[in-house]
């Protein structure tokens, strides 16, 4: 119940129904986070994103992050679906779902997973703008700052 999946196709119709699992594990909390492609980066209207990853290694890294979350919080399950390839504005990029007995662990662990996903998992994003230009997204120092507060490595 700790797994990562990377795929090119949209996942919105594949979000697992965790009702059964939540009842079985006596969970009182389920937190989910979905990241979506924004229409603008700064002022420039975006046409689409292209995401590259490192097959096998990216999956391993996400699984390592999920294991870390499992060690630090009392969570019952956690999974990540991350898309790669071409993603249009408004499409979902990433889904994180975490279940736990209590909400605090589920909230914190899902935030931790996203902070680490953004700064540790090998994904690279390229923006293609409506004006025909494109550029690789640079790593944000704010993301690194967010990650530091957990003091987990």
């Amino acid at each position: 119940m700790f797994w990562a999946k990377i795929q090119e196709t949209p996942f919105d119709s594949e979000i697992p129904n965790l009702d059964q699992q939540i009842q079985t594990n006596n969970c009182g909390a389920l937190v989910s986070f979905k990241g979506v492609v924004r229409g603008y980066d700064e002022q420039e209207p975006l046409s689409y994103l292209y995401l590259e990853h490192f097959p096998k290694v990216t999956e391993q890294e996400i699984e390592r992050i999920l294991q870390l979350a499992k060690e630090y919080w009392e969570i019952k399950s956690a999974f990540v679906i991350h898309r790669v390839g071409r993603l249009n504005v408004g499409e979902s990029i990433v889904l994180v779902m975490v279940s736990a007995s209590h909400r605090k662990a589920a909230f914190e662990a899902s935030e931790f997973i996203m902070d680490y996903l953004k700064t540790e998992a090998p994904f690279w994003k390229k923006e293609f703008f409506q004006n025909g230009t494109s550029r690789w997204v640079e790593a944000k120092t704010t993301d690194l700052e967010q990650k530091k507060r957990w003091q987990i490595s």
Partner: peptide, 10 residues
């Protein structure tokens, strides 16, 4: 060997 630039997923 793979050389990985700073990551920008999520």
């Amino acid at each position: 060997v793979a050389i990985l630039p700073p990551v920008t997923g999520g």
